[in-house]
């Protein structure tokens, strides 16, 4: 059998883990974007729109929405780290930057989760 040179083998360290997570979260966000555009296209039918929205206000979807907030926060803040590394000479401090992403990410996630949960009925 021919050896597959494109085998998915990564050496794991902070940089590569951040990169793999960035891709996985990105793929999840594309899936969400497609569903989002489709759901919002119901706006041409007010009654239908409210019906869909009432369905999406169920606790299960609220929990998923909180998960979405977490995925977005990771992708956004790690994306800013990538920009710092690529454009602003952050490569020397890339490990510190990774842990910065973790800390800032947790803080921003909680800062959003508190009012989000507070708004639930």
């Amino acid at each position: 059998m021919k050896k597959n040179v494109y085998e998915l083998k990564y050496r794991y360290h902070t940089g590569s883990v951040a990169w793999v997570l960035h891709r996985l979260s990105g793929l999840a966000l594309i899936l969400y974007l497609v569903l989002h555009i489709w759901v919002i296209s119901n706006l041409n039918n007010p009654a239908g729109f409210n019906k869909v929205m009432a369905f999406l206000n169920e606790p299960l979807f609220k929990l998923l929405e909180l998960g979405l907030w977490g995925v977005i926060i990771y992708h956004a803040i790690n994306g800013l780290r990538v920009i710092l590394v690529d454009f602003f000479g952050g490569s020397k401090n890339q490990k510190k930057l990774f842990w910065g992403v973790v800390v800032v990410g947790i803080v921003v996630f909680i800062a959003g989760a508190v009012p989000f949960i507070g708004n639930l009925k």
Binding site: M53, N57, E65, W69, G112, P115, F116, N119, L120, K121
Partner: peptide
């Protein structure tokens, strides 16, 4: 999600 009622209608 953070201000207002958080409910989308």
């Amino acid at each position: 999600h953070f201000i207002g009622t958080g409910e989308t209608t």
